[in-house]
Each structure stands twice: as structure tokens, then as C-alpha cells.
Amino acid sequence: MFWKIVGALVVAWVAIMVIGSVVGFLLKAVVWIAIIGGAVFLGTAAYGAIKGKSSPKRLP
């Protein structure tokens, strides 16, 4: 009976460690994707602002 409890605790601990590492990896991946996406967005906005100043658009 004692070894069943110890075995169950070990299996639960390993499961929590695996789930925690997967969730941690996914969170890091989402953060890096957000950082890269923000940098691309800012770069595109800056390029559009610089490019758009030479030819102003007017309403008819």
C-alpha cells in the first residue's frame, strides 16, 4: 500500500513537471511572437509614415 501511494505521487509529480514545462514553453513562444509582431507593426507604421509624407492625399 505504501509503494502504491509513493508511485502515485511520483507519477503525479512527473505529470505536473511535464505539463508545467510545456505550458512554460508555450508562454515563452507567445511572448516572443508578440514581441516580433510588435516590432514588425512598428516598422511597417514607420515606413508608411515616412513614405506617405512625400505624396499627401487630398480629398476631392
Rank of each mutant, 00 (worst) to 15 (best):
residue 17 M to A: 14
residue 57 K to I: 11
residue 1 M to N: 11
residue 51 K to A: 12
residue 29 A to V: 04
residue 50 I to F: 13
residue 45 A to G: 09
residue 33 I to Q: 04
residue 56 P to T: 06
residue 44 T to F: 03
residue 21 S to R: 12
residue 30 V to P: 00
residue 31 V to W: 03
residue 48 G to N: 14
residue 41 F to V: 03
residue 27 L to H: 09
residue 36 I to T: 01
residue 51 K to L: 07
residue 36 I to E: 00
residue 1 M to W: 04
residue 29 A to G: 09
residue 27 L to M: 15
residue 27 L to K: 13
residue 7 G to L: 04
residue 17 M to E: 11
residue 5 I to H: 10
residue 17 M to H: 09
residue 57 K to M: 10
residue 31 V to G: 01
residue 60 P to Y: 03
residue 2 F to R: 12
residue 16 I to W: 15
residue 50 I to G: 06
residue 28 K to F: 06
residue 29 A to W: 04
residue 30 V to R: 08
residue 43 G to R: 01
residue 60 P to T: 02
residue 40 V to A: 09
residue 47 Y to C: 02
residue 19 I to R: 14
residue 25 F to L: 14
residue 54 S to K: 15
residue 60 P to E: 10
residue 43 G to D: 03
residue 15 A to K: 06
residue 7 G to F: 02
residue 1 M to K: 10
residue 57 K to G: 03
residue 2 F to C: 04
residue 25 F to R: 09
residue 18 V to C: 15
residue 22 V to E: 12
residue 8 A to L: 12
residue 17 M to I: 05
residue 3 W to Y: 11
residue 10 V to Q: 08
residue 41 F to K: 07
residue 50 I to L: 14
residue 51 K to W: 08
residue 26 L to D: 03
residue 50 I to Q: 06
residue 1 M to L: 11
residue 30 V to S: 05
residue 48 G to C: 08
residue 20 G to P: 00
residue 37 G to A: 05
residue 54 S to N: 15
residue 14 V to H: 08
residue 33 I to K: 04
residue 32 W to I: 01
residue 35 I to M: 01
residue 15 A to E: 07
residue 40 V to G: 02
residue 40 V to Q: 02
residue 7 G to C: 04
residue 53 K to Y: 09
residue 42 L to W: 06
residue 42 L to N: 07
residue 18 V to A: 15
residue 40 V to M: 09
residue 43 G to Q: 03
residue 52 G to Y: 04
